[in-house]
């Protein structure tokens, strides 16, 4: 029972990381706090729901294809938003940037309602991944293990890109020092757009992958974004590895919490975040700004 719960937690943590990674990536480079990240995730889930029946329903290949197509579509959407709207407000007040992404949340939510309605929809699990793996006398759902594996693959790809490609070097430069990229003769705008597209892709991917796991509805956006924010804040904004550690820790603690303190489960992650933030503030003196 405990082992199952831990695996559950790790899977949830991995999902959280996939969402949070895009959020923290975008913040690290362009200092944008994207409230609409959860909305992009939601679109990814709905698109997967739409595409799965079109691409040989119920098979693994069809599912993977649907998820990838959804992620690409969400990435394109993110790109359009960045180019049309975000670009105009990079220099302005932090609050304004925040509000504009909140505006996007409201817009996307109502559009989703218009297209897919207000009821829950379900995505069927690919046949190859349904069922459970029996270890000792505990059953581990294969789909969850597969999601965890997919998450590891995404992490591996991200690390490879960041460590070894030119894009990754630019990304690190942009995260550490925004002036430096300009010195390297790279158009900063291009980097902001690419990072926003990449972050949106990750959000769409996470939404697609998680689609068969639970109900999909128009209220997914807030649940997801709040969880992702907590993970990102715990890990330190802009810190990818921090987000990974934060996501796995939150996932496991949450599923353990459900086991032992079901009444606290709702508020547990907020308590964790509050504890981390207060500890951080006590460990450091003076005003920082």
């Amino acid at each position: 029972m405990l082992a199952v719960q831990v695996v559950n937690g790790l899977m949830e943590g991995m999902m959280l990381f996939l969402i949070a990674s895009g959020l923290t990536l975008i913040f690290g480079v362009s200092r944008i706090i994207n409230f609409a990240h959860g909305s992009l995730y939601m679109i990814g889930a709905f698109l997967t729901y739409q595409l799965v029946p079109m691409l040989s329903d119920g098979t693994l290949v069809g599912f993977i294809g649907a998820v990838l197509l959804s992620a690409i579509a969400v990435a394109a959407l993110g790109g359009i938003f960045e180019i049309l709207v975000l670009r105009r407000i990079y220099g302005s007040e932090e609050l304004m940037q925040l509000i504009i992404t909140v505006a996007l949340v409201l817009i996307i939510r109502d559009i989703v309602k218009l297209i897919w309605g207000r009821n829950d929809v379900l995505v069927s699990m690919p046949a190859e991944l349904s069922g459970a793996l029996k270890v000792a006398d505990a059953y581990f759902p294969i789909f969850q293990l597969a999601i965890f594996g997919a998450g590891l693959m995404v992490i591996a790809v991200m690390i490879l890109v960041i460590k070894f490609t030119r894009a990754g070097i630019l990304l690190r430069a942009a995260t550490d020092d925004r002036g430096m990229v300009a010195l390297l003769g790279i158009n900063q705008q291009t980097i902001f757009t690419s990072v926003f597209v990449a972050g949106s892709f990750l959000a769409g991917l996470a939404g697609g992958l998680a689609a068969p796991f639970g109900n999909i509805n128009y209220m997914l956006d807030t649940t997801i974004i709040v969880g992702a924010f907590i993970v990102v804040v715990i890990g330190g904004l802009g810190n990818l590895y921090g987000a990974l550690a934060g996501a796995l820790a939150v996932g496991v603690l949450k599923s353990m919490g459900v086991l032992y303190y079901p009444r606290l489960s709702m508020v547990l992650i907020f308590l964790i975040m509050a504890a981390v933030l207060v500890a951080r503030s006590l460990g450091r003196a003076g005003v920082t700004r």
Binding site: V85, I99, I100, L104, L106, I107, R109, I111
Partner: peptide, 13 residues
């Protein structure tokens, strides 16, 4: 809320 979202965006921009 769609309308609110659009108004918000218009105000910020």
């Amino acid at each position: 809320e769609l309308v609110v979202g659009i108004v918000l965006m218009a105000v910020v921009l």
